[in-house]
Amino acid sequence: MSVTPPTAERAPVSRLRSARVTLPHVVRSEWTKLRTLRSTRWTLLISVIAMAGLGPLVAAVQMSRWNQLRPHERLTYDSVTTAVGGWHLAQLAIGVLGVLVITGEYSTGMIRSSLMAVPRRLPVLWAKLIVFAAVTFALMLASSLIAFFAVQAIVAQHHVQHGLGDPGALRTVVGAALYQTVLGLMCIGLGGILRNTAGGIAAFVALLFVLPGISAILPSSVNDSISPYLPLNAGTTVATHSFGGSNHLATWTGFALFCGYAAVAITLAAVTIMRRDA
């Protein structure tokens, strides 16, 4: 004869028995985290305005001064390059946001909540990368297309417009979005390695914008041989319609190298996140 033990002695089992940590669940969580911070929304808005607006603004100024341009400048005017030029400014916002996506969690302590919910840790990093890549690519592609069509409409008055079907035009427009997406992912990696906002942003600026400056003060033979491999120069091949010189990597080779740099940063971040105490 069996006796039912008193129920009060039994430790309760969670009523939420169907709950499971899965990558799709973590992706949803990271999407919520990204969209619910005011700083994120502002930074993304700035990047969209820069990417969509800078090209048309420059084009409008150039068209109004068209007669003052030298004949050579008019002959080589590239409305595709002008159109996607917004990446020069937008990349700064994207890079900073990439760093903040991780370091913002470390500086506030949120990372402890994140890692307690997902103790295997790496799904948090993968989910951040997936969400950030999707959001950045969608926004930058849309902005890049807006800039492209706006600029072509502006420059039509002097008949220097391009169609999206012209050689390299579509690739450049999509490339501007691709470059910035991978840049953002690399910055998530930098943030994960350094876990400190100031350090992460310093590393991003140093790798992208300081290295070319240092390279430029080296003997020109040295500069010529390393310059094409620097992150900025390699990464932006895909967002460039017509190159100023010949010292650059082929479009997709350069971009592939840039993806390699990003992969190295992300791998180091993954190792760091797994090894370090939170």
Binding site: L16, H25, V26, T32, A117
Partner: peptide
């Protein structure tokens, strides 16, 4: 609310 929501979502809660 959003803090708790983001934590809940990792588990599908």
């Amino acid at each position: 609310y959003n803090h708790l929501l983001s934590m809940a979502q990792t588990h599908g809660i």
